[in-house]
Design a protein around this nucleic acid. Structure first.
Lengths: 169, 169
DNA sequence: AAAGATTGAAGCCTCAATCTTC
DNA sequence: GAAGATTGAGGCTTCAATCTTT
């Protein structure tokens, strides 16, 4: 088997030669995650394209689909998805244009806007999920143990960076 | 310890309730990578900001800094970094504006443009690397074994998707 | 004043089209 | 005609500023 064909392994070599051995593990981990994200996003977006969805919009749609009432304040959406309010506005605009979501006034707070999934939204959410599950999530070239290990390590990373709330108000 | 405070674990719960248990592992893995990438990029970009660099530009700069002659055809840069030619053009424009890189005509091929790192570029590459290594790569809240496991799993993923050349022309 | 959402600006990425050179 | 690079368009993200409602 060949060595040095992997750009990331090549980078590790460079780091070591530069005397940065201490940081090479972290560099490799970070670079690997960056590249894996790029590949995963490409695959998901490609599969979602026929549905006029992107991963960003798909996530919003699924969040609403799994909510109790099918509607959530825009702010809540950004909070759950850990994304900037401006990104939510953008996603809702496009989802609304395609009739997958409707903006509804929040009866409890005039400042707030509720994003409500429409019947068409529920339909596309179901159809898109079937394909994403079958073509991407169930087709990752990794074993169950590897998938679990990946999740566990990244959960530790997120926890270590305070990204996971401890549930204590 | 609390349960359900992690948005990704909540998503896994939803997936199971929807009858998509088969895909829940993959969904969790993909979502975890997406989120980890977001967090890592934020940290790296924040540390790089004082140097007027982004991770994208930093990668270009380091690639040139580790090249034999300090110069590479723009196409090669995109190839190594696995990024679109248009992204390379964009990065080179900004790096050139800051005097970190200079575009040089390729004596061997009039169509090609060589990106050459300048002395200022080498300086900022060294300074920025010291900080990125110390503040990010060496500060990941993971053990060496976890970092290695993360790299290994993601290498398998990349290999499984044909992202790693086998070295056989 | 403070919170919720939107707008405009700027950065990165990709794709399609274009221009130059081989 | 094909390859290398650039341009323009469109999508996503964040930040800062703004506007409305509490």
């Amino acid at each position: 088997v060949s060595i040095g064909r992997d750009p990331i392994e090549a980078a590790v070599e460079n780091w070591r030669r530069a005397g940065w051995s201490e940081a090479s593990r972290g560099m490799a981990a970070v670079t690997s995650v960056m590249r894996a994200q790029q590949l995963m996003l490409q695959r998901v977006d490609e599969v979602l394209k026929p549905f006029k969805l992107t991963f960003a919009r798909y996530e919003v749609l699924m969040l609403l689909r799994f909510s109790r009432t099918g509607a959530l304040p825009a702010g809540k959406v950004g909070e759950r998805l850990q994304v900037h309010p401006a990104s939510v506005t953008n996603a809702l605009n496009r989802l609304e244009d395609d009739g997958f979501v409707a903006r509804v006034a929040n009866p409890r707070d005039g400042r707030s806007v509720l994003a409500e999934i429409t019947p068409a939204g529920r339909q596309v959410a179901a159809d898109a999920s079937a394909v994403v599950n079958a073509k991407v999530f169930e087709q990752l070239p990794l074993g169950d143990d590897e998938l679990d290990a990946l999740f566990d390590v990244l959960r530790n990373l997120r926890a270590g960076w305070g990204d996971i709330g401890d549930g204590l108000p």
